[in-house]
Design a protein around this nucleic acid. Sequence first.
DNA 1: TAGCTTGCTAAGCGCTTGCTTAGGTCGTCG
DNA 2: CGACGACCTAAGCAAGCGCTTAGCAAGCTA
Lengths: 199, 199
Amino acid sequence: MTDLWPDVRPDAARRLMAAAVAAFGERGYHATTTRDIATAAGMSPAALYVHFPSKAAVLSAISRSGHEKALAMVTAAAAGPGDAAARMRVLVTEFVAWHARRHRVARIVQYELTALPEPDYEAVVALRRQTDAVVRSLIEDGVSSGVFRVSDIRSAARAVLSLGIDVARWYTAESKPDPETLGADYAGLVLAMLGAAGA
Amino acid sequence: MTDLWPDVRPDAARRLMAAAVAAFGERGYHATTTRDIATAAGMSPAALYVHFPSKAAVLSAISRSGHEKALAMVTAAAAGPGDAAARMRVLVTEFVAWHARRHRVARIVQYELTALPEPDYEAVVALRRQTDAVVRSLIEDGVSSGVFRVSDIRSAARAVLSLGIDVARWYTAESKPDPETLGADYAGLVLAMLGAAGA
DNA sequence: TAGCTTGCTAAGCGCTTGCTTAGGTCGTCG
DNA sequence: CGACGACCTAAGCAAGCGCTTAGCAAGCTA
């Protein structure tokens, strides 16, 4: 199911996280019990507490690593080669494709923020602000270099991120098109939205 | 707080629904208890069951009326005067403004689908399909009349709806700009995204 | 005024929840 | 071989859950 977290040890902790991703992603955090997670990972309910101090800690581990992955992806794309339009095309393609391919993780990342305990919530909000800032400055870059034409940069940045984030809400294993095609489609729409010259 | 459902009688039922909207919209359905709802409405826990057969029935009432409102809004805009671009401008402006102004109701409508009991879930999914179809046929109309230029109509329709729906996720009472301004901003972005001539 | 309906509460039932405790098994190393 | 640490389970606890029951007070009708 998930070959994420290749470095998480021991193996049982990774199996628990994978089971939690499936359950949180399908039913939501509050609708999932610790028994659901443990038995899906092939263990007794108590085994979860050998590897995690609480149910919320499992959520935090998933949410933090997902946010870090998303930020790394966006940062790398924004720092890549080419003009603002080329970099934005890569950014949207990857961001959207990730939200489709990893839609269960992405759902947890995007929609279970309020279930996080206080210190983890703050950490994750900081990561989100960084992601916002990267997208905003890429749009600013494009506008000042004459590649983009938008009236309000804040609204435009929010719209770009919204397009990607909302994919996690509706995308399922049966959805069409495949994640990469969807990403490319959306990248075209975003460039048009930003008034890119070549679009 | 909410002057929605002016026709819901008796008054106590409306107060319960308003309290449920506040709680479900802030914390989510599963994180809200029937005691939360009842005490927020100034009643004892048992009073809820005088007016609703279950907690899920309260959710259903909120979700159904919200979906009906959204569909009516979208249908009216799509059937309005002007060319496809003008009608799309009205549709997006109202759809986005509603998701901002009524963000708590909208959150329940958009993110608590899976908590609905089976018959209500089916009914609500049918309403959602109708909303999708209205937007899709408006885009088709615009493409065939030469007003819009998009490569894939399905993706474009999804993107338009995503932009509006995702507003419910992040918009709060403290957010800027006000709902109507945001709606107008987003309408401009959508017209550009659809390759509208005048944009 | 008697009897019924409507709208509510106090009390609590049966069950599930997140989590704990006590103990067992297995591989590793002195 | 014996002690230890890593990993796991059976059993269960206290708290909180959705919902029910029994009954009371106010207002309408006859």
